[in-house]
Nucleic acid binder design. Structure first.
Lengths: 261, 261
DNA sequence: CGTAAGTGTTCCATAATCCGAAAACACATT
DNA sequence: AATGTGTTTTCGGATTATGGAACACTTACG
């Protein structure tokens, strides 16, 4: 389906640039303006795109917000987790997030913002973050086999986001084995300076890892001593969600479950 | 662009049904299975659709959540309004919503849930509601001319959602003129039994109506006496947002500004 | 004020691309 | 093993997308 490929290229480019004109899209994609115009005007007619009447530039319409909302609903995980996330926020006074893996990235499904903290990590549902530099991502890495982890790192070629970001294989392997022992992961200013996270896994009825829950907040408030306490709380919360999904084990299936190569 | 029309038909149908197989889509759209398959497999390849490996059914992927999130960000309105919405929630202890008009419907951009109320109106960002039966929608109707209101009602043919829903032109015209006088609109169990809303308009720098903010909560808690007080609060809040958008008038531009036919 | 440069938009002959009936395939269920 | 479900592949034909070129319109500049 060659023409559809072009359509999706255009949608991707418009999403990247937020708003773009026909000529602009033409030079980015290499398709002639007439082709772009035909595709884009169909998208406008079907209300998938908006066209600014004065600048003539095109942008994604609210239709995508609507469709995204549908997708979020389909994950009844979100509905199940909500009350637990709110309780965890109340217990810790820190923001709480729910994320799932999508390919080589994590994608946030939901979050409960702390009313107490001023510093907020930007985790709107739909935002993507790397696996290696986040608490939720490392939870997923820790459940993968060593070769899988390596090939994932190969593919994504993670760049250090802060001086603390782990990017070398050996460092990451050590970190993952620590996570498997403790049952929760820590992001110690590895994604954003000044922000620490503590994250734990959510399993479904079959014991499959389906999501991760994290507490995130200013490093000044999440001291080293607090981390173990928060780890306990986030594990309890994620276990409660797992239970509602029909999981009958414990978080401790992590322990001593080193993934070999 | 005929083939793109088919693609969008398929996306629409999958969004409606949440998940669908090829046969199912074929009978819904009238296109032969081979056509559906070609389109859908391209969408899967480009990660716009997911295919359940066991049931083979297709669904919208997280890509749509991502794109929807982008759209929401583009409305920096959301970012500007956020703190005001939170303050309004704190003042009223009721849930607060931000919505914009999209065609003949309203679409929610953001909401702040009350921690105090058990009964919650379901207003996730991206959800659509009719213009005539909601507080936020009536704000937009009240800024339209009578003929525009009538033709909008003609197009949408609103169905009563509760015994209180206004659907006749004369009743609505009276209601709109009341809104123009008061500067805020009321949804008195017109959308959902047991739920009352109070909504006010947000204007941009050019004085154009761009959004509406509403307080929504259980009718038992939002008594008739409270409505005027809430009206004052929601007007103050929406005016504060309007000011941040560069608006230099007052909400009272509604008053005595009857739209003629 | 007029010319030039830049955009979005429309047209149309050409052939590449999409189409869809039918058949093959995969996989449960009986 | 047979039946029924639904998915996937094939392939010749013609519908449909293509893209160069012309047009309309706005903005930038001398």
């Amino acid at each position: 389906m060659k023409s559809l490929q072009k359509v999706l290229d255009i949608i991707d480019k418009v999403a990247e640039t937020r708003r773009a004109g026909i000529r602009e899209l033409s030079s980015m994609t290499g398709f002639p303006p007439a082709t772009i115009h035909r595709i884009v005007s169909t998208l406008v007619q079907r209300r998938y795109f908006d066209q600014d009447p004065v600048t003539k530039k095109y942008s994604l319409s609210l239709r995508f917000l609507e469709l995204g909302s549908r997708v979020q609903q389909q994950f009844n995980l979100t509905a199940i987790a909500r009350p637990h996330l709110e309780r965890l926020m109340a217990e810790t006074k820190e923001s709480v997030n729910l994320a799932v893996r999508d390919g080589d990235e994590m994608i946030y499904l939901d979050h409960v913002r702390s009313d107490y903290s001023l510093l907020q990590l930007f985790t709107r549902p739909g935002v993507r973050v790397p696996l290696n530099a986040t608490g939720v991502g490392k939870v997923f890495l820790s459940k993968m086999s060593n070769p899988d982890v390596n090939s994932c790192l190969e593919r994504t070629q993670p760049k250090p986001r802060t001086p603390y970001t782990l990017t070398d294989k050996i460092g990451i392997q050590e970190e993952l084995s620590r996570i498997r022992t403790k049952g929760f992961s820590i992001d110690n200013e590895e994604f954003e300076m000044g922000v620490r996270c503590v994250a734990a896994p959510v399993f479904d009825h079959s014991g499959e890892l389906v999501a991760a829950i994290s507490i995130s907040g200013a490093a000044v408030r999440i001291s080293q001593e607090k981390i173990d306490h928060f780890g306990k709380l986030v594990k309890r919360c994620s276990l409660a969600v797992s239970r509602e999904l029909g999981f009958d084990g414990t978080n401790e299936i992590f322990i001593n479950q080193e993934k070999g190569d």
